[in-house]
Every structure is written in structure tokens, then in C-alpha cells.
Nucleic acid binder design. Sequence first.
DNA 1: TTGAAAGCGGTACCAT
DNA 2: ATGGTACCGCTTTCAA
Lengths: 378, 378
Amino acid sequence: MSFCKRLQTIFSNVCKNYRIFALCPCLTVYFKIEDVALTQESRLTLTGLAKLAGVSTSTASRALRDNPLIKKETRERIQALAKEHSFSINHAASQLRTQKTNVVAVILNLTDHTEQSINDPFLLKMVSALNLALNKAGYEMLLSNSMMADSDWASYFISSRRADGLIIVGQGKSEDNVNDVVTAKAPLVVWGDPKLNKNYPIVGSDNQYGGYLATKQLIESGCKKVLFLGDTEHTEMAQRYLGYQQALKEAELHFDPSLTIDIDITSKAAYEKVNQEILNRGLFFDGIFAVSDMVAFGALKALKERYVSIPGDVSVVGFDDINMAELFHPALTTVRQDTDLAAQLMVEQLICQFEQKPAQSKVLEVELIKRRSTPESY
Amino acid sequence: MSFCKRLQTIFSNVCKNYRIFALCPCLTVYFKIEDVALTQESRLTLTGLAKLAGVSTSTASRALRDNPLIKKETRERIQALAKEHSFSINHAASQLRTQKTNVVAVILNLTDHTEQSINDPFLLKMVSALNLALNKAGYEMLLSNSMMADSDWASYFISSRRADGLIIVGQGKSEDNVNDVVTAKAPLVVWGDPKLNKNYPIVGSDNQYGGYLATKQLIESGCKKVLFLGDTEHTEMAQRYLGYQQALKEAELHFDPSLTIDIDITSKAAYEKVNQEILNRGLFFDGIFAVSDMVAFGALKALKERYVSIPGDVSVVGFDDINMAELFHPALTTVRQDTDLAAQLMVEQLICQFEQKPAQSKVLEVELIKRRSTPESY
DNA sequence: TTGAAAGCGGTACCAT
DNA sequence: ATGGTACCGCTTTCAA
């Protein structure tokens, strides 16, 4: 054992709180262990950083949060030091103290009885828009299907302080879960039908007007028998259905209930149903208003397989305007929902609640995007 | 001021730790404030629950985590009580104590120079698969674009204890960010090219074999001039390119560099480029291997607009097998990547690291899905 | 089988 | 402008 080693050992035994720093015997420097804790394996903490900077933890904390109470010079010095050591605040500790998580849970509220899944492009578009909007506002997004939280969202996310608030995408057909969240007084925004007069803020498109626009476009293209392809019980779809009826009425067209085809809102269901209907009843329609682009795609596939010309024989209008709508052949005429704006509004309304301000429901304008699945206007 | 009120006031002044419970003067009952904290507004804490149950916090904590140290009876009683009061553990406090977040951050690693975005269906499919796999393993998913974390992922997510580990989707073209994470010794799994011999685990498809299969299919369909449509610099795509070359070689077809079309891997770029190429050079190819389904869709759109028959004049094979592939007309022949299995493997490899076990790269098998964009086999 | 108590790493009130 | 210090709510060691 070298002299240095031995010295170190003896030294350690003498006083466990000190450690030899430089091992040259004539120049032995020692520090209290806490002073060199930084060189240990354990991660750097605020206390450590403060010690490095020669200030108190309070000062370090304030400096990092750019609190003007601290002299600018000091602030910058500490921030630089933090960057140098790639130190970052322990989020859990901070959370515990401030009772703020800076996390928002996004829950995709899919009812069991539909096949519409987390794979649905529109939902995913919504999710990515939300992600962006949340990040912009300084929040992280915790994405959840309903598996973890099962049903008691309030206690899972809020009471357990996993998130500061909830964004629920889709009202689905049941709203028990949502009501529980409201009862628990958890900050909450729902994507759904904003015209519903609920005691929680709902952001959504003007679905009825969208349905009206879509149907009107078909009628103006010369369609006399417009199919409604969708789920009339689904909250938002029901609104679109109203718009459909409104447009028919306005054009003084007879409302034929046999033109309402109730399906699960997936491409697959649409494809199968349209196929089957044509098989049974022939081409008894000349236009389709599909409640979503995905449903429209399914219908189009069926039509194309039967060599029905689009928009020659049948015109089709969708809803959502997902990216694929433009890429499809023929490019799909559809009603655009502005997901970016929607996400932004939802985040705004949620933040209102964080700040104890009242939140409101918001209706988003929709826009008809004319493409090739309806005839060119003349 | 009523007698009761006054009594209460006086009482409060005398001893701030006690509070009148029943205000009837002849029957004044008082408790230490901490005993009635439960009736206060503040949320129920473990301490409160323990008090309600008449046990210590230690016991309550253990009971909730089903620790067999506690008598079964006691455990059940406390668990029932927790459910009754819809109590749930404060996640932040628990995190701080255990140094475990049970959260995994998923980062979509998109390079700046590509338009491929968070809207990309394949990426989203991956994300939803990861969400499911993580939830199944008891982890939450923190979804992040690169905005919040900017570049220093390790310090943002790990050192700040926001997440226990990282899953990075996409190697992109630069791996500086990834290397930083490795240096910081953060648990990490990357979705990318698993054949790359890196010092971190990579899960990915057998891209070269996929490219080979796709090209082989085209050649067997009678194609003599197969276009490669993609980005030869992108790690995974480069592998697919190798497979393309391999298939050509095997079939003793001349490798013509002018048949390699380098594009940004988006539908839009593919559409524009194919359009332009046909304009400039005519229909100089009879098959297209597109490096992704989205790229294939772009190409198909261009072809269809020019009335090129598919697969009559040109056959097309994609890569990924996103949901739309089947829905497209003609349904797209493509190479399937198994995202569900991929997600599962990634989560497994990440958990290995949590448990200090070594993690490995994993190669996923790919499968050719024959549909209508290539001729029926005969 | 249960309880007491010491932290986990910050933040913010109250001093100075 | 800065420091001392009492928490935030839970887990876990040690003691009983």
C-alpha cells in the first residue's frame, strides 16, 4: 500500500467527514465530504449547485427561475454553472412543493362498442396538435388510453397529482366518466359537441353547419338522393345528421329515412355496408355524405370496386379533412375541422381553469374544401 | 356575534391547536386540529387516511401497496377506506422518495430537413403501439416532440426525473442527441436500424430484407426498370436501398443510377417529383419501390393523374403497411413492419435497463403483403 | 405486526 | 440582495 493510500485510509478512519483531495503528502488538501459530494456518483442537486456557486439554496433556486430578486450577475453566474454541469431541477421535488405538475393528461375516450381506435387518423391529428399546443404553453402531455386510469380519471390523474388537468378527446356515447371528473372539480376540457349545454367547457366544431355545408354541396352538384353514412347516436355525428336534414329541407328535397345508413364510424364498416347495400338495392343513391373522411374512404373503396364513377355516378363528401383526403384519388371533398385551432382553444380553456378563471365552450368554424369527389362547380 | 361564535373565537385564541367541533355550549367537543384535518378542504393525504383508519402512516402506506407484512385484514380495511374516499397516492411525493417515475418519455426524433412530421401515419401507429405496450407494463407515456427538450434529452427527462427512460423513435440523420443520452447513462431504446452496431439497443425491422422482398416482387411481376423512390441518406432507408440493389443483382438486372430518385420522404415530395420526372423523361420505368407507404401514395397520385394504369403500366410496392394501404385504390402491395411487436420489444429492452440487466438490439422480421398495386401472381 | 422518524430535493416565507 | 428553515406527502429503516 502506497504512502498516499495509507494516509488516506488512516485519515478516513480518523474523521469520516473529511476526505483527502490531493494525494501528494506534502500538500494534502482536504474538504468536508459534503463539499465534494459533487464529485460523487450521486446526481447534482440544487444544494450541490448552490454549494458550488457559494450561495444558499434559496438563492440558487431563485436564480434558476430567473427571479428578479436576485442580482442579475448572480443569476447569470448560477445559470451558467447549471448549464455547465447540465444540472436540472428535480421535477418531483418541485412538484411536491408547488403542487403543480405542468403536465396535462390527454385521454382518448373511445367507447367499447366502436372499432374506432387510437389508430384513427383524425384523433391522432388531434393528439399531435394538442401535443404542440401544450408544449407551447409550457405543459407536457401525458397520453393515455383508458387502460391505466380505467374510469376514475379524476382520482388517477388529478388527486394523485400526475397531471394538473385533463383534456378528454371524444364524448363518445356515455358521459359518466366525464361527470365524475366534473364532480371532483378537476380542471377539464372536452373535445366534442360545443352546443351541448354542459357544466364543463366543450370545444368542438360547428357540426350541424358542417353537415349542412356538405349536404348542400352535394345537392348543388345535382344529387337528388343523398345517403347519410354514419352513426346517428354519436353526439357529434347526430349534429351533422341534423345539418344533413336541414340542407335537404332547404332544397325542398324529400327526406327519405332509407337513405340514412347507420354504421360504426370506421372505413371497414363503411366499406362493407356500402358493398352490401349496393348488392341488395342497387345504386339507389347519387351522393354520399360520410360523417368522417375515413368512412368516406371506405365508401369510395366499395364504389370503386364496383366501377361506380366518382363523381360521375356518385358524389362523395367527407368530414375532418385529414391529410389523406387530398392524397386520395379522387381527392376528397370534405369539411375541414381546424385541429390546430381546436387544440389551442382547449389548452387556453384549461389554463383558464388553472388560474381560477371561468372557462367557456367554444364553437369552431368549419370550412368546405372542394376537391374532386364532387363535380367541379360551373 | 352568537354565543357559539364567540366561544369559538375565544377558544381559538386560547389554543390554536384545538377547534370546537360541536357548537352546542353544553356539549362542546373539541379535537386537536390535526384530527379533523380530514374535514378540511385540503385533499386527503396518506396521513389523513391513516388517521381515519386509526393506524400509522407506515401501516397505511404498506397496506395500500399490499405489503404482506401487514395483516391481511388490516390491509383490506385500509384499501376499502381508500376506495371509499377515492384517495390516491400523491405521485410526486412517492416519486421523490422512491426516485422512480413510472413514466417513459417517447421522443419523435424528426430532423429539421425533412417535412416528415408528427402527422406521419407510421410514426403515429408506432406511438399508439408504444402507448399500449407501456401501459401494459405499468408505465405512463410522456409524448414529446423535440420542442420542450430541445436537444439535451438526458438532462430534461432523466436528470430532472420526469421519466425513468427514453424511447426515441427514428434515428434521423444525426445521432448527436442520442449519443448525449448514452453518455449520460440514461436508459434508452431507439427505433431505427438494428444492424447498426451501436452502444445502445436499437429495435427495428430488417430493412434490407424488406427492400429486397419489395424489389423482388416487382421483378417477378415482370418489371425491368424499377424505380427506387426515397432518401438514400436516411439510415433505415439506406438499408432498404441495399436490399433493392441486392434484388436487382440477383435477377441479373442492370443497376441504373438514374432510376434512383432521392426525395424527402413525404407524399407531397413523391407526388411532385414523380410528376416532374414523367414530364421530363416520359414513363421511363415500369415499377416503383417506394420507401414508405406515404411515399407510395404520393407516387400513385401522380401516376393516376396521368392516367398510368396500375399495375398495368407501372407496379408499385410500398413499405410499412399502414392502415390506409389496404384502403387505397388499388390496395397497396407493401412490406409490413410489425409495430405492435416492435413496441413490445422496445418496452422490454427498456425495462431490462431499469433492472440493470443488459439490453440488446432486436431485428424484426418483415413480411410482404401482396395487394393490387402489383399484378396477381400466376 | 405495527409505529416513529428521517429524509427524498426543492420552494417560499421570514429574517437580516 | 441573500440566507435559514419549515414544510410538501410519501417510503422505509429501525425499533418495539
